[in-house]
Design a protein around this nucleic acid. Structure first.
Lengths: 157, 157
DNA sequence: AAATAATAGTTTATATATTAACTATACACA
DNA sequence: TGTGTATAGTTAATATATAAACTATTATTT
């Protein structure tokens, strides 16, 4: 949900802050659609790719991540990880095994199929991102992320 | 889905462009949670509030909007509007009536209950937005929205 | 050690989002 | 005028998101 028209049509209604909020929503919404189109070509969603990315880079020495860790890292509710892992387990992209010492935890790891798919998709993704972003110079990007970081801190997260 | 950790931990992996994308995702995700918390106090979701806002400001002279218009304005799929209007019709916030001349169209209007709720919530919302955003000066906000606008154009939307 | 807390994960109900296939209606043009 | 096409909305299947209530396990505290 993005409310495109608000950005242009409601100058008398929208405060600058409100405008900025809608603008961020709108941009994120468009990017999500683009990402889903892209990852769909590989039978993935953007969320599934991002979990694979996490598992690939953050679970040191094949140690895997617990669902709670994934939930924290992706900033989504625990309940959400259950169904996400269900789907990816069914697609044989990840495994879910009980932790040896603490049986409350499930340890999620990439399968070799998952790892192969990730290493196949990642370079295309990075290339795509670079292509989309290349017209913007690096300084401007730094400024955007820096300011968003500031907005985030203002929102006390 | 926001991948908080990527922003800090994967400098070697994330290109500046990739970083910027994740940053926008992350910020939008946090804002959506905040908005939902806020609107939840009034029995609304952020999406429902935004539809009410559209109907309140954009449907001139009580003319209402068709579902296709709403779909275009909110940048979401047509199918989504069906269920959104279903829920809001059930809550007696909007009505759905057939267009007199072209029976393909449904015309969606705020009920008096919907209008009353909207005018009750809006000032609180604007106050809240102002409060959250006040630490940032207007110039910075202008720059953020201006740059996001540029990103959007680069994405050819 | 037993009672209580906290933590991890699941389930259920709900809201939002997509695409694809469908119906109904209106338009267009040959 | 009739047929093909375009448009509006719905439905179904699927993916993601939340909160709340639940089970199982571990930690703490007396």
């Amino acid at each position: 949900m993005a409310l495109k028209e608000e950005l242009g049509l409601k100058k008398d209604f929208a405060s600058p802050a409100h405008e900025a909020l809608l603008s961020i929503y709108y941009t994120a919404s468009i990017m999500k659609k683009r990402a889903d189109d892209f990852f769909g070509k590989f039978g993935l969603t953007d969320v599934q790719f991002n979990l694979m990315n996490l598992l690939y880079y953050e679970s040191g020495k094949e140690g895997g991540l617990s669902q709670a860790q994934i939930s924290d890292m992706m900033l989504v509710n625990r309940a959400n990880i259950t169904s996400l892992v269900d789907r990816m387990e069914k697609a044989e992209l990840v495994t879910r095994t009980a932790h040896a010492n603490d049986r409350r935890y499930n340890i999620i790891k990439l399968t070799s199929k998952g790892r192969n798919l990730y290493t196949k998709v990642e370079p295309h993704y990075l290339e795509q991102v670079k292509k989309v972003m290349s017209p913007l110079d690096a300084a401007e990007l730094k400024r955007i992320t820096g300011m968003l970081e500031k907005v985030r801190r203002t929102l006390q997260v």
